[in-house]
Design a binder for these strands. Structure first.
Length: 595
DNA sequence: ATGGGTCCTG
DNA sequence: CAGGACCCAT
């Protein structure tokens, strides 16, 4: 991890570019070596030091306009460890995903078909115990039901009764489940069991469909009429049972899968694999690993587990990497793009650590990176860092779009939770509801994709479809997705050009006579407006090239307006034509994470 | 016809 | 930011 390298690359790029620019010239406004007095220009007058150097307009229109970004990109590539980092994360999460997928698959298979309860539970019992228990249940349940019904008026007693009843059921089912686990299946006895007996086909679906049909036409084809009747008249009881079973089964399966993972020494790779650099990565990613049992998967070889563990359920989480890559991207962009590294902004990244601990760690990291700076500057940056960190702790803003998933789960999603779910380090123990939400997010573009798109805008205003596909490789590109992304950038441009026009008009009104006065620095109002829009959290170091392009755009607008071109309804098109040529290459880590 | 773009509106 | 109307190039 070497954010300082990144940061230095960022901050030197613009000068290099501009100094190397050939002396082409802007058609109408020749540069003047001595900038005029601009003290009364309030629009875009730079007050920052970074852009004090007056630049020849020719630079903006030169063929080396991508120079800055090229340098920028090359700096990025100097640090290939990031990609392997991503790989680590993905491997880790792949392992977890695989595990979870398996559990998920199993649970889903059961929850999806209520008939399964019948088979899984009742067919796997020994006849004796089951018959006894079955009788007990038949005798027991109605009384509970009566209690429930009678106490319906009192909310407290009602809930208590229900709770007790639930506990009883729970206990019973727990016992039964133990039997399921400990005793081998004896299908020869299943015909004696009420729920499934008489069924010529033991497949869950068929059993269930029969069960269903019997709900409509009572006693049809079923031998244990009374029992069925009992269940038919009490669908909520069945539901309760189903829920309890669901819960128990999922817990048991999760536990057993976990124990398998825990007890497999082969999954742990030799610590020798951790050379210095890798170790840095691992330690840095330690927050990824929820605990020791997961930490073992943090090592490189963890990837080999993925295909071996379980593949059949992977389709459920096949889009998981997209979330991770997006989120990793956000995180890394922050880490890399900062001259003075800011903390991993997503508090959820380190949800498994105490905030203070993270704070300290990041703080120290910041200190290390700042150590070669003048202490005053370092102090100032640390202060801003602290301020920033405090703001980060309470930040949880999620666009509504990501919640508009057209999926079947009409659950309301807490934005904070949602954001945490977007991150790779989702608690393994999260319940199925949470997991469902997670899967929902994979259906389309998420808020993180939007964030990423906005950051991309700093490099490219007119991304091609190919670039979009490369940068959003984690999204399944449908026509809809593509057009949505295109629409996003269209909207970005719209805002961008509106701002440009606004500030250009303002400058004109202010009586700015010379286009060279119009500059876009990091402290300028215009940049602040743009930055607020595309980089609201201000956690991304906007490339200098963007400032240059913004300046060119502003000047183009100013020139056009000053020439009265806006009388032509399509006067902006000429500007668009100029600006679209100023796109830079998107840095590599915006694209695929694969090495 | 399709894709990609702007403009306008909510 | 999305939807729709409209334009334009392929």
């Amino acid at each position: 991890m070497n954010p300082s390298l990144w940061g230095k690359g960022m901050f030197t790029s613009s000068n290099i570019c501009l100094e190397d620019c050939p002396a082409e010239q802007l058609s109408h406004f020749q540069p003047d070596p001595a900038p005029p007095d601009v003290s009364n220009v309030s629009v875009t007058l730079h007050s920052d030091n970074e852009n004090m150097k007056m630049l020849p307009e020719s630079a903006y229109y030169s063929s080396s306009e991508a120079g800055s970004s090229l340098i920028f990109s090359s700096k990025l590539e100097l640090n290939p460890r990031y990609s392997s980092c991503d790989h680590h994360v993905w491997n880790v999460n792949s392992g977890h995903q695989a595990k979870r997928a398996r559990v998920e698959n199993i649970i889903k298979g059961m929850t999806g078909s209520p008939g399964m309860y019948c088979l899984k539970v009742t067919t796997n019992q020994h006849e004796e115990t089951d018959c006894v228990q079955e009788k007990e249940r038949i005798q027991e349940l109605p009384s509970h039901q009566e209690n429930t019904e009678r106490s319906g008026s009192g909310a407290t007693s009602h809930s208590q009764t229900k709770k007790k009843q639930h506990e009883n059921q729970h206990q019973r089912l727990r016992t039964r489940f133990k039997n399921v686990v400990t005793e081998p299946t004896d299908s020869s006895k299943e015909e004696n069991y009420p729920m499934c007996s008489g069924s010529p086909d033991n497949s869950p679906r068929d059993s269930y469909s029969r069960f269903e049909s019997s709900s409509n036409t009572k006693y049809q084809g079923w031998k244990k009429v009374k029992l069925m009747n009992y269940f038919q008249s009490r669908p909520d009881r069945i539901k309760l049972m189903a829920d309890v079973l669901k819960y128990e089964l999922s817990r048991a399966v999760s536990r057993s899968v976990d124990s398998i993972f825990k007890s497999m020494p082969l999954l742990q790779t030799s610590p020798n694999d951790n050379s210095g650099t890798v170790e840095t990565d691992v330690s840095l990613k330690s927050s990824v690993c929820k605990d020791n049992k997961l930490r073992l998967a943090c090592y490189e070889n963890a990837e080999v587990q993925v295909p071996d563990v379980q593949t059949e359920a992977l389709s459920l989480v096949v889009q998981k990497p997209q979330l991770e890559s997006s989120d990793n991207f956000v995180l890394q962009s922050r880490l890399r793009a900062h001259h003075h590294p800011k903390p991993p902004l997503d508090s959820t990244v380190h949800e498994d650590q105490p905030p203070e601990k993270n704070h300290n760690a990041v703080h120290q990291h910041a200190l290390r990176c700042l150590q070669d700076e003048p202490s005053e500057a370092a102090q100032a940056k640390l202060e801003t860092f602290d301020t920033y960190w405090n703001s980060v702790k309470v930040r949880s803003k999620v666009n509504s779009r990501s919640m508009k998933s057209p999926q079947t789960h009409p659950v309301s999603v807490d934005p904070t939770l949602l954001e945490s779910l977007c991150l790779p380090h989702v608690k393994i123990e999260s319940d199925s509801l949470v997991r469902n939400k997670l899967y929902m997010l994979n259906e389309g573009l998420t808020t993180n994709h939007l964030k990423k798109a906005k950051l991309m805008f700093f490099y490219t205003r007119y991304p091609s479809s190919l670039v979009l596909k490369m940068c959003f490789h984690d999204v399944q590109f449908t026509r809809c997705i593509t057009s949505q992304l295109i629409k996003w950038f269209s909207n970005f441009r719209e805002f961008y050009y509106i701002q440009m026009e606004k500030f250009a008009r303002h400058a004109l009104m202010e009586g700015v006579a010379d286009v060279r006065v119009l500059t876009v620095g990091r402290q300028s109002e215009l940049f602040r407006a743009l930055n607020m829009h595309y980089n609201k959290a201000n956690d991304f170091q906007v490339p200098d090239r963007f400032l240059e392009v913004a300046e060119i755009t502003l000047r183009e607008f100013y020139i056009a307006l000053s020439m009265g071109k806006d009388r032509d309804p399509s006067w902006k098109k000429a500007i668009y034509k100029v600006i679209c040529k100023l796109d830079s290459d998107v840095p590599t880590e915006f694209k695929t994470h694969s090495e």
